[in-house]
């Protein structure tokens, strides 16, 4: 169940859209922010808000890279594995993240803090290798910097 305030603001977002569907991505993102991931319940709530069936929301939810239909950690680490970051040896950074966090790609740390997911080009090619942690972008990564960032993000809940 989502709080009334969130429901009201989502209803307003849907009402302000030219067609309810246009607000679908916003609604899914808001619900994801609330639950941490887009739960089955959230899909049904989104459907009710948008006047769609849960399946029709699911059709959209499963298309997008940044909508999570499975539980994720408190903060999702998206680490770029596209060409510019590859040039900057992102493989080393990804391996370091795996080792440091003790998870494989797609895995969530035992404490439920981080989920590690490779992602497509983040548009940070000038600062490659790059990643984002809970939506905050970080560039020019080195293993040492990654350690610092993880430590900071872990404490900065």
């Amino acid at each position: 169940m989502i709080p009334e305030t969130l429901k009201t603001s989502l209803k307003a977002r849907v009402a302000s859209a030219l067609t309810p569907r246009e607000a679908a991505v916003d609604v899914m993102k808001e619900l994801q922010a609330h639950y941490g991931w887009l739960t089955d319940e959230a899909v049904e709530e989104a459907a009710a808000l948008l006047g769609l069936s849960p399946l029709q929301v699911e059709e959209l939810a499963t298309f997008y890279e940044m909508i999570y239909r499975r539980p994720v950690g408190k903060k999702v680490i998206h680490v770029c594995d596209s060409i510019s970051c590859w040039c900057a040896d992102c493989d080393k950074i990804i391996q370091h993240l795996k080792d440091k966090l003790g998870v494989g790609l797609g895995g969530t740390t035992a404490d439920g803090m981080f989920t590690l997911i490779p992602c497509c080009c983040m548009g940070m090619c000038g600062d490659s290798p790059a990643m984002s942690v809970g939506g905050v972008p970080y560039g020019k990564l080195t293993p040492e910097l990654v350690d610092e960032i993880l430590e900071m993000e872990r404490n900065n809940r």
Partner: peptide, 12 residues
């Protein structure tokens, strides 16, 4: 929707 790998001009 600047997602072409290697492209970040619109962001900048």
């Amino acid at each position: 929707d600047e997602m072409e790998p290697g492209t970040y001009k619109d962001r900048v």
